[in-house]
Structures are given as C-alpha cells and as structure tokens.
Design a protein around this nucleic acid. Structure first.
Lengths: 227, 227
DNA sequence: CTGAATCCTGACTATTTGGTCAGCTTTTAT
DNA sequence: ATAAAAGCTGACCAAATAGTCAGGATTCAG
C-alpha cells in the first residue's frame, strides 16, 4: 500500500506535517501570553513537547515561527465577509459578520491576541498585509455599505469606520478578556457570557445602523445564570 | 528666598521631581513601543537623557518603573465619568464620556497602548485594580444606566456591556492605530480623522441607544480634506 | 564655608536566550 | 537489506540585558 496522497502539502513528509502543526499550535499560545519578545523558544518547545533544537530544525528562527503563526491567523481574519454583497439584506449580512467575529473571539482568543499584539506594536511584520490586502477588501466592502446607505437601506454611517467599530466591538472580548471578566465579576467567560455579549453587540450595531431589532430576541432572553 | 512650597510632593527634592518625571515620560513611550518585555532600561535611559545607572538610582527595578507608569495611566483612565448621573440627560452624559475617551485616544495614544498591552497579557500588575476599583465604578455607573433604561429614557441595553463597547470603540483608535491608518489610507491620524472618528462613534452609539442624532451634525459636515 | 545628603557614573557580573553544530537515530525508497 | 534522507539531540557559544557597587561630583542646609 502506498500513501499516494499528499507527498507535498505545503512541503514536507508525514512527520514534518505533524511537528510543524504542533509547534504552531504551541507557539500561538505562547505568543498570545507574552508577545513576540515575551515568548522564548524554550517555552514553545516545551509546550509542543519537543526539544528546543528540534524546533530550530523545523523553523530556523523565532521570527520564522512568529511569521508562520501570523500567516495562519490572517487567513482566519479575512474570512466571513462573503455575505456582505450589494444585493444582500443589510441586517442579515451584518448579523452574520458580527456573529462570525464574535465566534472567533470566543473560540480562538489566543489567535486574536497575537494579532492584537502585533498591531499594538506597530505591525512590523504584517504592515504590508494591512496596507494592501486588508485595505483592498475593506475598500470593496465599504463601497457596498455605502450603496446601502445611499439606497436608504441603512442609516447614514461612515462605512470604513463602521468596520473599524465592528472589529473593536468583537475583538475586545478576546483581547481584553481580563478586563471584561473583571467588570462582569467572572473568573472566565462562559458560553452564556458570550451569548449575552453577542446579543448586546448585535443590538447596539443594528440599532446604530437604523435596523431595528425584531426577532432573534426571544432565544436570548430565556437563558439562566452562568455555569 | 526659600522655596517653601513642596518640600515633599510624592517624595524627594527639586531634582528628584524633575528626573522621575522625565523617566516616566520616556518609559511610557518605550513601554508603548515594546511592552514590558520589549522595553530595555538602556532605551528608557537614553530616551530620558540619563544614564542607565541613574535610572536605577531613582527606580530600583524595571518593574518599579513599569508600575509607576501604570499608576499614572490608571488615574487618567478612571476620570471623566462624573457626568454620568441618574438625573443627567443620557445623551449629554454619553456624548461627554465618548468625547473624553476619544480625546484621550488622540492625545495620549502611548498611555492607552501601555494599558492595552497590560490587559492583553493578563493584567499581571493591575488585576486587582480591575477587579476592585474599576469593577465598583462600573457597577455604580451601570446602575445609573439601568435606571435610564427602566425609565424608558434610552433603548434597552446591557449597561456593563455598553461600557465595554465604549472602551473598545474609543481605544481602538489609539491601540490599533496602524490598522486604522492602513484601511483609511493615511500615514498618520490627523485632527480631521479624529473628528470624523468621534462623529462616527457618537452617531453609532447614540442611535444604538435609541437617542436619535439631531444637532451637532452640521459642524462635522463642513470639513474638507486632511492636512 | 563646610559637612552631609543627594545625585550620578562607568565598570562589572550573573543570567537569560536565540541560534549552531557534529553526530546519533529513525524512517523510507528501492 | 541497505543506503540515503529526514528527524533529533545535548553541548556549546555569543549577545543582550537587569541589576550592583565603589567612589566621584554636585547640591544644600545651617
């Protein structure tokens, strides 16, 4: 029997696939905790269950690991704008986008934090991505939103600033989780907290865009206390 | 003539006052650039125009400098909630708060970034402040907002999540300035950008709280291009 | 003016950490 | 089976950096 599948999938054999993935997973956690400078190769190696030398075998330098982690995250980050089209119902499109971003904050907080940290320190590594890929995408989507505004389908808002606001509103639950926990009096955010947060952001933004919130309300209201 | 004033104002003589202030100012910039781990005592010293040893003379350790910087920032952070009272007009109170926070983002972005960085990495230094002082203040103010909601003076919103949203919406312009610049196609944020951003956030939040935006619109609309 | 307190410095140390390397072990293709 | 390729390791090194210290310079009270 011959494993005819993927002799080359992004380079390397069976073992390489496995180890690189383990390293990147560990690195995401470690970079999220301490940022680029705060992370050490030794810690990444330990967290991945490998020797430091072995990590260096797969990724030459710490910067290489970091860039690989960021590349993964950027893919996540760009996704989920497909529902935002000129023909779409603004309410559906925005709801979908917000929910997707909130899901990301809840499920991949470390990824969000690595990204936030990179931005916070001036985006030395992904500056070009921001200025090129991201900017183009936002320009496209902003044009669509502008169309909605001109057609009177949503209240007048600055489309680009709207996207900035959506990012801020959703990512804050991942990036600044400690602060959120502190003011909510929670030790950690549970699924109920995330549902409440999502409901709140939807509520605020939809109404803020003149899309009054009917429906989808009931399923939120029937929740009890947190676990 | 005898300088009868301040023989002791937070400890120390004339020179000490001056040097400590210089160090803290420099440190805020340096910590904002690289976070705690990314900052070096040598860089702080250079930026302050002192020798490294001299910085150690005034502040024993790097952690001491960091804590002092944070203490300064926290004072800024807590301020500006005084207009939020049960009797106040919700529109005025929220507008004032948002404008104050936006001003802070524009004028002290480094302070905001140091704070953001501390949160991002789990608030090891200010965790107690968040859980005690901040939490109490938010609890108080949230009760007031809840009162507004029950009196039908603003649309139903979760008060605590509203504050979280306000922080996110306003600080994003300081913390993630690179990203904002990138999608706006600017090299840096000018006063016009900040005015537009403020108008947008006010617009979104006030409408989101059911406080329809009349007045204050015109003075925004008449601006031209950026400098 | 003078002695004490404060201020300041350059040289030094201990530690941490990213990265290298020679060589050993395991896997794999034929 | 075997040889080559891929995977792995511990010992080691050089650079960076927080913090120390003995002693010199400056300021200040009286």
């Amino acid at each position: 029997m011959k494993a005819v599948v993927r002799m080359r999938e992004a380079g390397g054999g069976r073992i390489r696939q496995q180890q690189e993935s383990a390293i990147l997973q560990a690195a995401e956690r470690v970079f999220a905790r301490g940022g680029f400078q705060g992370a050490t190769m030794a810690e990444i190696a330990r967290e991945a269950g490998l020797s430091k030398s072995n990590v260096h075998y797969y990724f030459g330098t710490k910067a290489d690991v970091y860039r690989a982690v960021l590349a993964n995250i950027l893919r996540l980050w760009l996704a989920e704008t497909d529902r935002i089209t000129a023909e779409a119902d603004p309410r559906d499109a925005l709801s979908h986008y917000i929910q997707a971003k909130m899901r990301l904050s809840a499920q991949r907080p470390e990824a969000s934090r690595v990204f936030a940290n990179e931005l916070l320190h001036g985006a030395p590594e992904i500056g070009n991505f921001l200025r090129e890929t991201l900017r183009e995408q936002v320009e496209d989507k902003a044009e669509i939103v502008q169309g909605w505004v001109q057609a009177g389908r949503i209240a007048p808002v600055d489309p680009v600033h709207l996207f900035i606001s959506l990012w801020a509103l959703t990512q804050t639950y991942a990036d600044f989780e400690v602060q959120v926990c502190a003011v909510l009096g929670r030790r950690a955010l549970g699924t109920l907290d995330h549902r409440r947060a999502t409901a709140h952001v939807l509520n605020l933004v939809l109404r803020g865009c003149g899309l009054d919130d009917e429906g989808g309300r009931t399923e939120i209201a029937r929740e009890g206390q947190d676990a």
